[in-house]
Design a protein around this nucleic acid. Structure first.
Lengths: 189, 189
DNA sequence: GTTATGTGATTGAATGACCAACCAAGATTG
DNA sequence: CAATCTTGGTTGGTCATTCAATCACATAAC
């Protein structure tokens, strides 16, 4: 069955890519890991890049972190993120890796850019809700989301680069920082 | 002269790597860009990885952001970072790229890990100074530094991936968040 | 002052391996 | 029987690394 092999290839690609890295994994490796012939990969995916992007989107779908709304939802999202950092290092490794690759690969770059924009928009929604709950000016929501999502990305990076990094501590600090920021009706410098 | 060619190779490598990316640049490319013979690169650098790490360290030396101490120094560092985001996208591109590569390359990974730890330690120093100025508990300095440095990394990532990203806005938000965090004598959840 | 000798710098070709993408032909399915 | 799926070999190119040979130049010997 076609969609079955497609799935097998996607799974094998994810496993191989997160284990060995984009540049160390060949189409042949992926085909072998999936137990199919080499040519099949290019039958189902136009190029290595398209395959990798398909893997990325597949993985992202399974890692949604926004389970609730408002302040509660924000706090839940941070908690969910902490769990994901523990349970899905493979997905995060792939993600960070592709960010790097995307800087010089148009196709992958476009996919990553779109993904990052979407994620940031989710955070912005949440920030807007939190600000609304406190009847605060919603204007800085975009800036706050940029900084918070940056923190999330950066924590991911540090955790993947350095297993000894205390990610829980960092997420808690980021959560505290972001919530104390929306609390203070600030007249910043 | 020997140290001269070494320098030429380093500069050519930086130019080529930041322009085309690690996996798209061969030793031969770098040698051509430097105007030297292919073999010379391996005469001066044991491997491609060692060359790349030498480039990274060289670049980092020229990008110090910590020009002052205490709260003033922290604010200055954020401002310096905003300038660097505008003026040295090439260096940041290389940096983020190498983070990705380092996830599956032992040598480069070790270099990057060391670098990230050092940077985070600098931020922690600064955080400790800020907390001391306000006579606050210095215990959370490490966590704050983790989150702040994460924010810096994440802003870098977003800016490099997406030229339309408003980095200034994000840095300002991060600065406000981090300073408001150390102000509030928080009893966080 | 001129010939030997040593040393590091430099060269470019060779090695051995790898890869993405393509393709022609066989298998399976509806 | 077509359309879709699958196979594995081929193509035309890439790469990091090694290496024997050459070079510039200095120090020392005669």
């Amino acid at each position: 069955m076609s969609s079955d092999t497609r799935e097998k290839i996607l799974q094998a690609a994810f496993a191989a890519l997160s284990r060995d890295g984009y540049e160390n994994v060949s189409i042949k490796d992926i085909a072998e890991e999936a137990g199919v012939a080499q040519g099949l990969v290019h039958y189902h995916f136009k190029s290595k890049q398209q395959l990798v992007l398909a893997v990325l989107f597949e993985v992202c779908k399974k890692m949604d972190v926004y389970t609730a709304e408002g302040t509660e939802g924000a706090m839940a999202a941070f908690e969910n993120f902490k769990v994901l950092l523990r349970t899905r290092p493979d997905a995060h490794t792939l993600y960070i890796q592709l960010i790097g690759v995307g800087l010089h690969d148009k196709e992958i770059g476009a996919g990553i850019r779109e993904n990052i924009r979407t994620e940031r928009a989710h955070v912005e929604d949440l920030a807007r809700q939190v600000l609304a709950e406190r009847e605060a000016d919603p204007t800085p929501a975009r800036a706050i989301a940029s900084a918070v999502w940056a923190g999330v990305l950066g924590i991911m990076v540090q955790k993947m680069v350095d297993p000894e990094f205390d990610a829980d501590e960092a997420v808690d600090a980021l959560a505290a920082m972001s919530l104390s920021a929306v609390s203070s009706t600030n007249s910043g410098a």
